[in-house]
Simulated scan of single mutants.
Amino acid sequence: MQQSGVPYFSQWETPGMTLPVLAEGSKALLNDPRWRHSGAATIEEYARWAVNVCGMACLKMILAARGEIHPTLELARACTAYGGYVVNEIDASIKGLIYAPFVRFVGDRFGLEAETITTVQTASIPELLSKRRFFIASVHSAIRWPERTPPSKGGHLVLVTAASNGTIRFHNPSGHDQASQADVDLPLAVFDRFFANRGISVDA
């Protein structure tokens, strides 16, 4: 497969923040020097949201592929207005991404055709991509280390840009180095160990 040509964006404004976040939690993001690029009003708002916006990073990449650049937190706020995220102001928790409101949001705001798919087999992803250009796939975040066995499937979103009968290619918003971030190639069988058989197909 050729390089995707799709711009890569991390869910952190500084892509190298993944390992500090894994070690220290979201407080590590209080040291991200590029936080203002996120569209957050404060660094605390950025740190609170950035651990939850893998889906918005995927959307940002889809929009960038057609020449539009939107700050990640601006996308998150707009998606929240549609119900794509639920914010608990008491304990500061954020629930999401919730697929159905996201589909409505991207259709209304950006004219994207999108569909939630909850029972897709890994082997069927190439066929999905023949119908729509992108697939936002739910995987375990440990996919950044494909040699490991994940404790479960799902919980993190990556942007699948290409797939064949044997290989899949994706951008991972929380990859920890260049090899695990942009245009990651994995055998379908390896991807399957992390994939929760659900996601959102999107056509730009």
Rank of each mutant, 00 (worst) to 15 (best):
28 A>Q: 04
111 G>E: 11
28 A>N: 03
146 P>G: 11
22 L>W: 04
50 A>L: 08
81 A>Q: 13
127 E>W: 12
30 L>I: 03
27 K>G: 00
165 N>F: 07
99 Y>N: 07
130 S>E: 15
156 H>E: 09
54 C>L: 10
202 V>A: 11
156 H>A: 10
62 I>M: 10
6 V>W: 07
78 A>N: 06
124 S>V: 11
152 S>D: 13
26 S>I: 04
22 L>C: 08
49 W>G: 00
94 I>K: 00
89 E>Y: 05
27 K>Y: 00
113 E>Y: 13
164 S>T: 15
31 N>T: 13
87 V>G: 00
96 G>E: 02
9 F>C: 05
192 D>N: 13
175 G>I: 00
4 S>R: 07
12 W>M: 12
174 S>R: 09
38 S>L: 08
172 N>Q: 07
130 S>V: 03
107 G>D: 08
199 G>E: 05
19 L>W: 01
1 M>G: 13
50 A>T: 09
120 V>E: 10
41 A>E: 10
77 R>Q: 09
8 Y>D: 07
196 A>V: 12
120 V>D: 04
146 P>T: 04
148 R>W: 06
148 R>S: 13
60 K>D: 02
203 D>G: 13
62 I>G: 00
102 F>T: 03
43 I>R: 00
177 D>F: 06
4 S>G: 11
82 Y>P: 04
155 G>T: 05
159 L>Q: 05
128 L>Q: 13
138 S>L: 10
140 H>P: 06
176 H>M: 05
37 H>W: 12
160 V>A: 08
167 T>C: 14
52 N>Y: 00
122 T>V: 14
119 T>L: 15
75 L>A: 04
3 Q>M: 15
118 T>C: 13
166 G>N: 14
139 V>A: 01
188 L>D: 07
102 F>R: 00
114 A>D: 06
85 Y>A: 05
134 F>C: 02
186 L>G: 07
37 H>M: 14
170 F>P: 01
69 I>Y: 09
171 H>P: 07
106 V>I: 15
85 Y>F: 14
195 F>R: 02
26 S>R: 13
36 R>V: 12
200 I>M: 14
101 P>T: 07
49 W>H: 00
203 D>R: 11
18 T>D: 03
150 P>W: 08
161 T>Q: 12
38 S>G: 08
139 V>R: 01
1 M>T: 13
195 F>Q: 03
181 Q>F: 02
4 S>W: 04
19 L>D: 02
10 S>D: 04
26 S>Q: 14
193 R>K: 15
31 N>D: 12
148 R>C: 10
74 E>W: 09
122 T>K: 03
77 R>C: 01
11 Q>S: 08
192 D>E: 15
100 A>G: 06
119 T>M: 13
7 P>A: 04
150 P>F: 11
153 K>V: 11
197 N>C: 15
5 G>R: 10
120 V>C: 14
117 I>D: 15
5 G>W: 06
84 G>K: 01
130 S>Q: 14
11 Q>V: 11
63 L>M: 09
169 R>T: 15
180 S>N: 06
140 H>N: 15
